[in-house]
Design a binder for these strands. Structure first.
Ligand SMILES: [Mn+2]
Ligand SMILES: [Mn+2]
Ligand SMILES: [Zn+2]
Ligand SMILES: [Zn+2]
Lengths: 171, 171
DNA sequence: TTCTAATTGAAAATGATTATCATTACTAGT
DNA sequence: ACTAGTAATGATAATCATTTTCAATTAGAA
């Protein structure tokens, strides 16, 4: 459950498969240790082996991961990393917008490295599959709504829930 | 914080103030004890004074309320109501779709009696003001996205976050 | 190298929600 | 109305994710 993720670009009618992968690295690009250090420094934090390892594991691992899952992965590589550090760093990265928090229902928070282009999620409630999509029309209409009420939007949460094709057939 | 709520009907450009109220009853209509009993029976639950009181308080109280807040309100009227019962009944009503759960960020879940017409929420992160809106265009585009990926949608979560007019000025 | 504030990990604390379970109260059937 | 049988209740303990504490360690500026 909750293993399949694909990333697509969807401007209303168009579906453009981009990076897209299921279990492995988040971006096509790989990050050198220097890249990792740069990112950490950019958020005004000191570079520590723990933070490098956590960030690296996050980058190489599955796209939507929980703090617990990330902690376990990191543990296998270096057991000198406490889970408080994972939580702390994850929280810090969320504040710096380096990672994005995903709270789906009442399940534990999942994290993903904030992508260059914003996307939203559609989740199958039967098998946990997550489809990422972008839809400019929806985003535009959100801005319209905000403008109507005089709000200045900072962010939003859009999650679609339903049954995916394969789960519909299994039934 | 988190006290002002207004409900509007917003089909893209149009803003039609409907029932709308801030602190008091949810619907214009008032519910008799028989109404309350009917609702409870409809969800295949037995009618008890606790459930009547909880439902009544929910109906008369603020639109988006936490389990804790509801418990405290109910307590003042009849201290023979345990908070386990409040949580349990709230959970039951959520399953029967009598109430809708609102999970905003990491704050405690808020509940509202499920309205006849679906709406989404826009929240001011400075003062907690919640604006309810309906936007058919967004809903339509959501369905389009779902269709593209073969999903059958069951529900969705759309929350807009930003700064309201008055908070923008205060700054 | 030295100094000091930042970071760390283990463990305890928190806070919302849920589960337990002995007691009580509905209500269908008499 | 009376009773049995089941559902509901509430005090309390348990969960579980996340956060905090704090003493020990470490990064990195000078
Ligand atoms: Mn994603
Ligand atoms: Mn609402
Ligand atoms: Zn599925
Ligand atoms: Zn405000």
């Amino acid at each position: 459950m909750f293993e399949h993720t694909s990333r697509h670009n969807n401007n209303d009618e168009t579906v453009l498969p981009i990076p897209s992968n299921n279990e492995t690295s988040y971006f096509d690009e790989s990050w050198t240790e220097d890249d990792l250090k740069q990112i950490i420094r950019k958020m005004n934090l000191k570079v520590t082996p723990q933070r490098i390892l956590i960030l690296q594991t996050l980058h190489e691992g599955r796209v939507h991961i929980t703090a617990q899952e990330l902690y376990e992965k990191v543990q296998k590589i270096n057991s000198d990393v406490g889970f408080a550090t994972v939580y702390r760093f994850l929280k810090g990265m969320a504040e710096s917008r380096v990672v994005t928090e995903l709270r789906m229902g009442s399940m534990p928070t999942r994290y993903e490295l904030t992508p260059k282009k914003h996307h939203d999620h559609m989740t199958c409630t039967a098998c946990g599959k997550i489809v990422e999509f972008q839809n400019k029309n929806i985003e535009d209409h959100q801005e319209k709504v905000a403008k109507q009420y005089g709000f200045k939007l900072t962010h939003h949460v859009l999650e679609l829930y339903g049954i995916c094709t394969s789960c519909q057939m299994k039934k």
